[in-house]
């Protein structure tokens, strides 16, 4: 059972307006059958401090990742997670989170790997909901019994591995990390501790567009013409139909993936979740330092 789309005017210019809902739409639809609201934050305790009434929490750190292998959960693991959250295969899932939906977009991207068809973001995320004075609660809503099917993860459409990136060189890449990480001054975002990459810099030819440029100060997405100016014009994507985005571990680039895929409507956008923690430590992959994208050196 799917819930009607949010007809908000702002979304209509986007390629896939059905992927977003406004805070007012969500407030009006809370409790509607078929709708499950999911909170996914960078700070894993934030949900406990207060969340949107009826929302369930998905913890990116403990619930979306395999505990041993650096990979996401498998089909059985995802089905178990969905059942634990009261989500059916045909549920409309609206995800929101802190920091301009940074982690919410990551969760949405993982849902996409399992082909969950109706998954949307709350435009502006947690901060906007709070700044508008809407209700928060610490009460946990009862979770209905659901029977989510075991669907195998499909890594071939929206996910890129290191080998895919190597084969993709020459086509557009977007590096969404901070300028300091891009140039190679450092391997982690400013004020973030080191998470272990041996070399600094960026993948040759990647254009630098820090992820947060897609968001307004209130955490909502920028309007289509602004996004077009940033990505198609300035970053040179033009009419590209195949793009790979990456960051440090694939979370910030999920946000950009959402923008390129669902707002700008680029047909084939993949997120390289290995990102810099893999590339910056891999042996003999090409790396460029400095502010220039650089060229491919075919050795």
């Amino acid at each position: 059972m799917s819930v009607a789309f949010d007809p908000a005017e702002k979304f209509q210019s986007y390629a896939h307006p059905e992927r977003l809902v406004t805070t007012s739409w969500l407030e009006a639809h809370l409790g509607m059958p078929g709708l499950v609201v999911v909170e996914s934050d960078e700070d894993v305790l934030l949900y406990e401090v207060g969340h949107i009434p009826g929302a369930v929490k998905v913890d990116w750190h403990t619930e979306l990742n395999d505990p041993v292998v650096r990979d996401y959960v498998d089909g059985a693991g995802f089905a178990a997670l969905m059942n634990a959250k009261g989500i059916s295969r045909d549920s409309t899932v609206v995800i929101y989170g802190d920091k301009s939906n940074w982690w919410a977009a990551y969760a949405l991207w993982v849902f996409t790997l399992f082909g969950h068809s109706d998954v949307r973001l709350l435009d502006g995320g947690r901060d906007r909901w709070i700044s508008e004075g809407r209700t928060l609660t610490t009460e946990k809503a009862p979770v209905p019994r659901t029977d989510y099917p075991i669907v195998e993860r499909d890594d071939s459409v929206v996910r890129a591995f290191k080998e895919d990136v190597l084969a993709h060189l020459g086509k557009p890449l977007i590096d969404v990390r901070s300028p300091e990480e891009y140039t190679g001054e450092r391997t982690t975002a400013p004020a973030y501790p080191d998470e272990g990459a041996l070399r600094a810099g960026h993948i040759p030819t990647a254009a630098s567009v820090p992820w947060s440029r897609a968001a307004n100060d209130d955490g909502t997405f920028r309007k289509l013409d602004e996004l077009t100016a940033i990505y198609r014009d300035e970053a040179g994507l033009g009419d590209a139909d195949e793009v790979i985005a990456y960051c440090r571990i694939g979370e910030r680039s999920s946000h950009t993936w959402f923008v390129l895929k669902h707002l700008l409507g680029i047909p084939h956008v993949r997120n390289y979740d290995g990102s810099w923690t893999e590339w910056g430590s891999a042996v003999r992959v090409p790396i460029v330092t400095g502010a220039d994208p650089g060229a491919i050196d075919r050795r």
Binding site: V44, D59, H61, Y192
Partner: peptide
């Protein structure tokens, strides 16, 4: 297992 290494390193800091 529950909190990212990033956060724990914040505490170490």
């Amino acid at each position: 297992a529950a909190v990212s290494p990033l956060r724990l390193r914040g505490m170490t800091g």
